[in-house]
Design a protein around this nucleic acid. Sequence first.
DNA 1: CTCGATCTATATCGAACCAATATAGGCCTC
DNA 2: GAGGCCTATATTGGTTCGATATAGATCGAG
Lengths: 174, 174
Amino acid sequence: MDVRTICLGILTRGEATGYEIKKTFEDDGYQHFVEASFGSIYPALNRLTDERLVSVRSEVQDKRPDRKVYSITPAGRAVFLGSLMKPLPEDRHRSPFVFAMLFSHLLPPERVSAMMNVYIAQSEEKLVQVRNGEARNPGEAFVNGLGRAIYETVLNYIRTHRADVETQKAQAAE
Amino acid sequence: MDVRTICLGILTRGEATGYEIKKTFEDDGYQHFVEASFGSIYPALNRLTDERLVSVRSEVQDKRPDRKVYSITPAGRAVFLGSLMKPLPEDRHRSPFVFAMLFSHLLPPERVSAMMNVYIAQSEEKLVQVRNGEARNPGEAFVNGLGRAIYETVLNYIRTHRADVETQKAQAAE
DNA sequence: CTCGATCTATATCGAACCAATATAGGCCTC
DNA sequence: GAGGCCTATATTGGTTCGATATAGATCGAG
């Protein structure tokens, strides 16, 4: 599931510029489960163009760089769907917050509390965003609901268990 | 939160070889939230050694390559704790399964069902693993519990909502 | 009305990172 | 005793990220 495949997928929703593809992650709540940077999107689009999996239409604008609008080709659509028929790579998750919690006993309690507060605030923001996202098909509704369920679980868990790590008492297993 | 920092963190638990650091992710349930490959661990340990943040002890074994046991130095411990005092990078999550679900309406229902089954099986496995993991401090208990809560939520959500995407009926928002 | 901030938009570079592969002996099972 | 798995280090090629550069548009605050 590389960036090229991700770009193809987003282009099945309609034509878009590289910038708009990136924005899709942020605006449409996709970013909770998949993301990519400009540094990989633009090269990916160039290569997809070379391979005739997408086509480009340059909207010339004077006093501005051209707006390059990409569309998926029939070949691109076939390649994309083909990649979804093969076994999917497993999820990968990197959470510096959770990793830091493994070392809470080495940190000042105020620092642990501060981390908790920041992480809660971020999760609340994402929950609001995923709640506001509207779905244009059953798949998107499914994904929105999953995001909502996860963020609610995380927030609820942290709120009910943060005291266990904020005070350096002996651990409570459950 | 680069691999060097992650290695330092694991070495605060005690000395270890590069191989054992990698295994920690798999065995101790750390992998649900953080992971690294050999291709980044070994160079990271070399650089940490150069920077005197870890020390190496070579256990010579005849007819085998040396076993290099790494230990964190006081300087390394200070650097690690210092990095936890700075603002943490945000979580990053890439889930090919969830991404694929966004395009379920373009796929044969059997394929969607197969994806569901595979993902459920994988999540169940991870849930078992996280349930069996024992905690050696409150932080690890907190992290284990969080993992458990998330996997339970995911499994429950998928089981109760998979029909919405497996049959191509009109979407049910809630 | 102008200054700074934010947005649109493309692009590149170096560093970081992953996946795969190579090597190699030991151990266990069938 | 053959094949497969485990320990263990290491490298390489390709992918990806994070930061930065550029540059005009737009818009709110002062």
